[in-house]
Design a protein around this nucleic acid. Sequence first.
DNA 1: GTCCTACTTGAAGCCGACTTAAAGTCAAGA
DNA 2: TCTTGACTTTAAGTCGGCTTCAAGTAGGAC
Lengths: 143, 143
Amino acid sequence: MLDIGEVVRRTGVPASTLRYYEEKGLLAASGRHGLRRQYDDGVVGRLALIAMGRAAGFSLDEIAGMFASDGTPRIDRGLLTTKADELDATITSLTALRDSLRHAAACPAPSHLACPTFRRLLAKVTWNQQPTGKPRRSAPVRM
Amino acid sequence: MLDIGEVVRRTGVPASTLRYYEEKGLLAASGRHGLRRQYDDGVVGRLALIAMGRAAGFSLDEIAGMFASDGTPRIDRGLLTTKADELDATITSLTALRDSLRHAAACPAPSHLACPTFRRLLAKVTWNQQPTGKPRRSAPVRM
DNA sequence: GTCCTACTTGAAGCCGACTTAAAGTCAAGA
DNA sequence: TCTTGACTTTAAGTCGGCTTCAAGTAGGAC
């Protein structure tokens, strides 16, 4: 059993965030010591899982829907595959964008919009955007 | 010269967003017809550029700092390269995540956290996060 | 028994990127 | 000239994901 303070120390995730996640149904404390939440040590893995989902652009609600509070998947494998496919599209898009930036850094054209190569990359980027998800960066979870 | 309504029709970007971008210094109308904003046709490319930046996880303020209002880069090439490198790290992270999801879809282990392969992928994801940027999806800009 | 300190609660606040609402303006067509 | 309707303005609202605040509580050291 880990006291919430210990979880904070181990993972770097603030207590306020842990409470927020609990409120959202992403995480469950396994007990209390007085008022204090106590977690079993699986919480560290679960937080990593949540961080992973956030990094992938899933909302907390989506993540809550994907995994039971113990981290075991609640969803069918097909959905996971679908999400993986979505990620693939995102990766493709970001890759094109990265190439655009590298090209912009090297291209001598006065305006990048005047450069055919850049315009082609640009088109790739703007067309490839998906309707779901919004990758965000959060502090790394220490495991 | 394009009336704001025409820009909306051509790009799919709402008028409110165009005004917001102007307020933020990302975009300038080249004139007015009565009260109505008029744009030169370069606006379409600029909007695509902004969309590109957003997709890459740059904030509007960052984008405003990167390009003059006509779309020509205002920044040094080194910064572009730096951003490209950041994107590279993001791509690496998302790729690991995609692999994790695909693995989760295929792995027979009861909890993914119990699977060594999954844990390895997970570690890759959580360690690779960067401090800046938060890719968001917006509606594609029609060019 | 008292005090310290780390926790607790609920509510409010914050940030970015917009969107929406309410009231006003104005060019163009009948 | 009058009406229409697409625009204008400023201000406030929204949404997700937290953080911060004020006030309260309780376990453990003394």
